[in-house]
């Protein structure tokens, strides 16, 4: 188990290093006007060179990389160049971080609390009304583009339920719509997969054996089916975190939530490269951590994975 976890941790670190490298190189490969705002056309060659040298972009590439890495390790992501000029990026991100974390966590918890029981119900009543209703929901959410979905929810629910259309820190009711938007996708995912894994397990031979040895169907459900169905569910954790991140980028800007997702959209629009760079790094790291957590959870739940790594014994 420890060996497996360490191995996966090492893989995650390698992924992270490769990621940092790619982000660094992509930014250096960009045309130089990408480092200036709208003022670029009015600047002459000398001014441009002076600005680039000042930003450290004319240093040797290795020196730049060293500066970049040591900066990240000290929590220094450089300074913003157009969003809020000369302000350290860490300062810009810090006040926005809590919003993204609160919304992200709340949405994942809500989705789990609704999605998992929904999937269990669908599997229990397979082929009957609850299953069809649930499947209808899943198909609808999956088929309609999220952007369309969110706008519909924002427009219709805000007027129908008299809810605030935009986020306001002082109004708790304004949390409802953005959370709903961020959760509908994950609820559909959890319900769909939970139903699928439960039905899979119910058709397995060991369920027949459990039945033949005289177990009641309630015991079979709680002692065999549910536990086994949760194992593949553990794999879904990273996907749902990634989904929440991508969801948050759009949802935050749609409801003007002062979080990091909305910030990324703004930073790209204003061509603030160091800021984009920092945000992409943060988002991808969360994804990598999610993947790692999912794998470790899987190994805890499924004994077969551990033996695979300890060399197996037969």
């Amino acid at each position: 188990m420890i060996k497996y976890t360490l191995k996966r941790l090492l893989q995650s670190v390698v992924t992270l290093v490769v990621l940092v490298l790619i982000i660094f190189l992509m930014m250096r490969l960009m045309p130089e006007e990408g480092y200036f705002g709208e003022g670029y056309i009015r600047m002459d060659r000398v001014q441009i060179e002076a600005a680039l040298t000042q930003m450290g972009l004319r240093d040797p590439i290795l020196a730049q990389f060293y500066k970049y890495i040591s900066g990240i390790l000290h929590g220094d992501f450089g300074t913003s160049i157009t969003f809020r000029e000369k302000v350290p990026i860490a300062e810009i991100i810090k006040p926005r971080l809590p919003y993204s974390i609160y919304f992200g966590l709340a949405s994942i918890i809500i989705s789990l609390l609704i999605g998992i029981p929904m999937g269990i119900m669908m599997a229990q009543f397979k082929g009957r009304a609850p299953d069809m209703l649930g499947s209808g929901y899943v198909v609808l959410v999956k088929a309609v583009a999220p952007a369309v979905c969110y706008i519909f929810l924002q427009l219709y629910l805000s007027s129908l339920l008299k809810l605030p259309m935009l986020f306001n820190v002082r109004k708790p009711a304004s949390w409802i719509l953005p959370l709903l938007c961020m959760s509908i996708g994950n609820i559909a995912n959890y319900a769909m997969w939970m139903r699928r894994y439960m039905v899979d397990e119910l058709n397995r031979d060991y369920i027949k054996l459990a039945m033949a040895k005289g177990m009641s169907s309630t015991s079979i459900m709680t002692r065999h089916v549910l536990r086994n169905a949760f194992v593949p569910m553990a794999q879904l954790l990273p996907t749902s975190i990634l989904l929440t991140i991508t969801g948050s980028i759009y949802v935050e800007s749609l409801f003007s939530i002062p979080g990091m997702g909305g910030l990324l959209v703004l930073a790209i629009q204003r061509q603030d490269n160091p800021l984009v760079q920092a945000l992409v790094l943060i988002f991808s790291s969360v994804g990598i951590i999610g993947l790692f957590a999912g794998d470790v959870l899987m190994a805890i739940a499924d004994p077969r994975i551990k033996t695979e790594y300890s060399g197996g014994s037969r």
Partner: peptide
Amino acid sequence: FQDPMTSLNPL
């Protein structure tokens, strides 16, 4: 049952 490979709960 016929198949001992699948007759037992793997977990």
